[in-house]
Design a protein around this nucleic acid. Structure first.
Lengths: 186, 186
DNA sequence: GTATCCATGTAACCAGTTACATGATTGC
DNA sequence: GCAATCATGTAACTGGTTACATGGATAC
């Protein structure tokens, strides 16, 4: 299986939502999809250039007085076709690498207290995440009343995925903290 | 923040459980920690060599008639110290990249039927995973009766993490399938 | 005056994957 | 006879991160 450039499809996807600059795309990623997808400038700019060469996106330059000039990219029909073809294929799994669980697995090498702290931190992290997801869901629901974009249902589903997993993680933290504390008493 | 070589710590960790060859380590990874950590030969062999140079592991060569010779690595006190120091630090988050959710997010570009199939596949995948976790938990519990290794509690916790998340994913799939089907009816 | 935002990019580096190379043994 | 397992490694490549470079505008 050839390694494919996922960044390309992520950028094409964002450009279907709105044409924009590399900077705009980065903002969109950080705000809207960062809980399941991340991109950084050092990938965005070269990949945009490459896609322009391939005819997947068009570039137009926006001159602004006072501000730096902006390269506005928009997706071409060829780009749309390529994106859609990729969307149809089943999602590939990337090999899991969760550092938290790796440390848990070997934690008999460190004081139990340190492990408990780690789990407590993990719980807190997920509680904050859950809060963020709830706000996002609310925000999406509100946007439905005003400009109602067609993606609402799908975007809510993506947020709910985060919610479900955060809730599950919190529950796991509670259970695990309990079971590890019991062990200390014994 | 300097990028640190996580593979190094994973290998050191495995070597605290049992000394062994690169091949053995790979087997251990695939069997015991693959649901949250993965390594491949092309990283394992060079990193073992490098760690030998650094004095973190010792190598001894095992001659076997009929079979290829084996390089048996074991962790040194220096290696243990380095591992433990790393274990004490908080786990770093790697930027999320979940292709499944990315495709969901942009799925208004593809037929709804294709999306439903993807979610159904995701559900099936998690059901199978859950089955694997349950078997692993049982296997761990049984090993406690016989040779009772000290890591039992932690290893069970790691398996339970997988269980919790798989259950959460299955629930999300059910809910999402429901809500997407309702939309079709409307 | 200081920090943040807007805006685009490059260079160097490291991590990780795929494919290739080799070859004996064991199980079906 | 064929596939899988045991066993170790290298080369080439791609992906992704960090750090660097630049510089005006706006907000506090």
């Amino acid at each position: 299986m050839p390694k494919v450039n996922k960044t390309k499809y992520a950028l094409l996807g964002v450009l279907t939502v709105m044409p924009g600059s590399g900077y705009d795309i980065k903002k969109f990623c950080d705000y809207s999809i960062s809980h399941f997808w991340n991109e950084n400038y050092a990938r965005i700019y070269p990949v945009l250039k490459e896609m322009e060469r391939e005819g997947l996106v068009d570039k137009s330059v926006e001159q602004n007085e006072g501000r730096p000039q902006k390269n506005i990219y928009s997706i071409t029909p060829l780009g749309e076709a390529e994106l859609e073809q990729w969307l149809l294929e089943p999602a590939e799994e990337t090999p899991a690498r969760c550092e938290f669980l790796l440390k848990l697995f070997f934690a008999d090498r460190i004081p139990r207290e340190n492990l408990l702290q780690k789990i407590a931190a993990e719980k807190l992290k997920n509680e904050k995440l859950l809060e963020v997801y709830n706000q996002k869901a609310e925000h999406l629901a509100q946007s439905a009343e005003t400009n109602s974009h067609k993606n609402l249902q799908l975007w809510l589903a993506a947020v709910n995925y985060g919610r479900c997993n955060a809730q599950a993680s919190i529950r796991w933290c509670d259970e695990t903290l309990e079971s590890l504390k019991e062990e200390i008493i014994l």
